[in-house]
Design a protein around this nucleic acid. Structure first.
Length: 139
DNA sequence: GCCAACGTTGGC
DNA sequence: GCCAACGTTGGC
């Protein structure tokens, strides 16, 4: 199983929106970047990802699960773009800020810290473990 | 609101 | 295929 991180601007589509979709989940639409799209294409059902609030908050607020592999993005006719579906799993008891990530040993190479513009990015198992601990999750 | 970083587009 | 112009993201 692989780990990922999804960025979203909370005033457009935030964690509460994702939670409101429940187990049905929601398509992660709107990605118009090849690298981000390729990351989605690499996802398998059951993969987990962090839900990150960009611009406002700038923190990891929750965990989502991939529930459908990449398929055409319903918000465009352009066949180049597709997206996965994700559902909310749980909120982080303690959201992890970008600032905290930058200074945390072990997260120096995290994509979030080094490539601010990539909206869907991979997270290593080690980074995942560190971030879950920082977020107040024991598992 | 600014701007750095980065990606895309299109002329040549 | 190069690269200048332009557009977007997202931290600050």
């Amino acid at each position: 199983m692989a780990y990922w991180l999804f960025k979203s601007e909370p005033d457009v589509f935030g964690w509460p929106h994702q939670v409101a979709k429940g187990a049905v989940g929601e398509e992660w639409t709107g990605v118009r970047n090849y690298q981000a799209r390729n990351n989605m294409r690499a996802m398998k059902v059951g993969d987990l990802g962090f839900f990150y609030h960009s611009n406002i908050g700038k923190e990891i607020v929750g965990i989502v699960e991939v529930i459908r592999e990449s398929a055409p993005d319903s918000t465009t006719d352009d066949p180049r773009w597709d997206c996965v579906m994700v559902r909310a799993v749980e909120a982080l008891p303690k959201p992890v800020s970008l600032e905290a990530c930058k200074v945390e040993p072990g997260l120096e190479r995290m994509v979030l810290v080094n490539n601010t513009r990539l909206s869907v990015q991979p997270v290593t198992p080690e980074e995942w473990r560190i971030l879950c601990r920082m977020g107040g999750l024991t598992g």
